[in-house]
Amino acid sequence: MSVLIRTENLVTRFGDVLIHDKLNFTIKEGEIFGLLGGSGAGKSTLMRQMIMLEQFAGGNLHVLGKPIRGISVKSAQSLRLQWGVLFQFGALFSSLSVLENVVVPLKEYTNLDKEQMHSIAKAKLRMVGLPDRVVQLNPSELSGGMKKRVALARALVMDPKLLFLDEPTSGLDPASARAFDRLIVELKHMFGLTIVIVTHDLDTIKNALDRFIILYDKKILIEGSMEDVKSMNHPALDHFFTSN
């Protein structure tokens, strides 16, 4: 299995505050990888650095074989076309309808005809469990959970290799959250997707993740699977895995 994302002594600072102190870990192709840690540990920041929304102070980060530090505009753009991102609150374009939100990347980057684009977008919307009646609605008319599903459909519409999910199950009811876990596992098997998730949801961690890192005190406390965690003893782990 090839390595899709690799960090090399990654250092992050906000002003004088050190957030990440030389992180080293790898994310392999075809795995569901979790970025875990308490609030303020810098999980989301780490994800935002991978998708080039935030800078890092030191070290380097390789995504799909390309070093992010000093990346050229052209390769940055080609990277962006190979991943999909689901933001915590969906980040749907409020001036576009649900269908248009999902179609937008297709319109911009393919020359399919309108019918094909719509059928792809509608299939993706069904895939994430949305009823057909929502396609013409505006994002402001949707519930929080529905917005997330639309955003997931938008993230998937270009058939990305790599999917980034920022707290995908927060704000969903338990049944929808578990359905979401099943969906991402299904997507992984079906399309060979590699999925990077920032999450707090213990059930997602147990059901969906193959491997994860836990950020603690600016460093990586552990990189591994649930099995590895069970054999390890650390007060921070108890706190993390028992407080729901």
Binding site: A123, K124, D132, H189
Partner: peptide
């Protein structure tokens, strides 16, 4: 096999463009 699974998956989620919503 992987394509077969994809085919089944997409057949399940396919929406015919005939029932497209007209605004």
């Amino acid at each position: 096999p992987v394509h077969q699974r994809m085919l089944v998956f997409y057949r399940k989620h396919y929406v015919s463009s005939n029932n497209a919503h007209n605004v």
